[in-house]
Nucleic acid binder design. Structure first.
Lengths: 211, 211
DNA sequence: ACTATTTTTGACCGTTTGGTTAAACTATAT
DNA sequence: ATATAGTTTAACCAAACGGTCAAAAATAGT
């Protein structure tokens, strides 16, 4: 398949990403990462000082990837509802393909909250622009004075939660793999419709819109 | 404070719950559980065969607690929108107070999917009643032919996701602890309103309601 | 008071873990 | 060819881990 020659450092990095994503910091073994990269374990410590620093590198990369994609769409020049449609579509695909990523981040944040809070703030995502943009569009395109943070969190919750809770939903409701694929395809249209309906509801009754 | 004399087994059980909830299976140490219970490590293995069985006990208890509360509200005799209001209120409080519980379950399901899928199906929650009840109420109270699973997942996502992603939201948007409390208080009214608006939107335009 | 049973302990064991070290190998430049 | 710097390895280490064991302490039955 892939015949491109990777540098040792890249092979380690890729292997570490896979193992950390699947097993978390505590579940991951340095030996397993070395095996997956096809190298000696000592070579891991030659390129990366220790497990912590290797994990930090993976976490940083993963986190910034997720967040940058998240903001990119909402900072573009489109109508708000179009952004939401694209966002939902993109994220259901993305997280389905990288199903370990979000649990990995949630897990990491609960395993070592203090250390990661630092790392996150060091990345300074500066989401003020994002929220301001949403606030502006809610106002100008729909005449709504709603807290953009709540709307944004709603969008994230409707999109991300089902993907994260997939194993749970599948077990509880006894859904086959095939039906699960259909389920997520349906959500690509259902979620934007749901949000659109909700926002239109505020328009009809603007006295309730002040929150 | 609490002067009730607990049995050793209960003390172990409580200690195990706390440690497993905070650190997950891989992060938890038997020694730490023993210390927290104020007993010798060997006594752990006297009451519980090994780490796995102790974890299973904690997982079962936690999982059934979450799910039973989840279904109880929706199977009661009330109007759908009242159920949703009560559900959102209850769960924002519950998960805020037990903030480790949901990540614990998500984490567990990604750490050991096969074993837990068994355990979950063994508990057989039988959610058909729940979905059927929601479907019926959507139809009778609002005249909607919508897939109840999607609506239910939407309710869960809007309610649970923000609590799970709390450390993330707080770090990214630089929100103080006090503002975070306000944020969740706001959601207790915002989420039911959001859902109510969305459902009313389907009523207006029933051609879109078939999903 | 004595015995039998249950509960609790300290010391210990084999394995696994992240990490180190010194030596070997490779490539490059002179 | 030889010195030099960078790369890779096998062997090893101390600490931490889950788990065991035999003996001590506590409890209950007679």
């Amino acid at each position: 398949m892939d015949t491109t020659v990777q540098s040792t450092e890249d092979r380690i990095h890729e292997a570490a990403r896979k193992v950390f994503h699947q097993k978390g910091f505590n579940g991951a073994r340095m030996q397993e990462i070395a095996d997956l990269a096809g190298i000696n374990k000592a070579l891991l410590h030659y390129y990366f000082r220790n497990k912590e620093s290797l994990f930090e590198k993976v976490f940083n990369e993963t986190f910034s990837q997720i967040v940058s994609n998240m903001t990119k769409i909402f900072l573009s020049e489109m109508a708000l509802m179009s952004k939401i449609e694209i966002f939902v579509n993109f994220y259901i695909n993305f997280i389905s393909q990288h199903s370990y990523v979000v649990p990995f981040i949630i897990n990491a944040l609960y395993e070592k909250p203090e250390q990661l809070r630092e790392i996150i703030t060091r990345q300074n995502v500066s989401p003020e622009l994002l929220l301001e943009q949403i606030r502006k569009q809610l106002k100008e395109e729909m005449g709504l004075d709603i807290d953009p943070l709540h709307i944004y969190v709603n969008i994230l919750g409707l999109t991300i939660f089902p993907v994260v809770a997939k194993p749970l939903i599948q077990s509880i409701f006894a859904i086959s793999d095939e039906r699960m694929v259909v389920f997520f395809e349906q959500r690509k249209t259902i979620v934007p419709t749901f949000i659109s309906n909700a926002l239109k509801g505020y328009e009809k009754n603007k006295s309730l819109a002040k929150i």
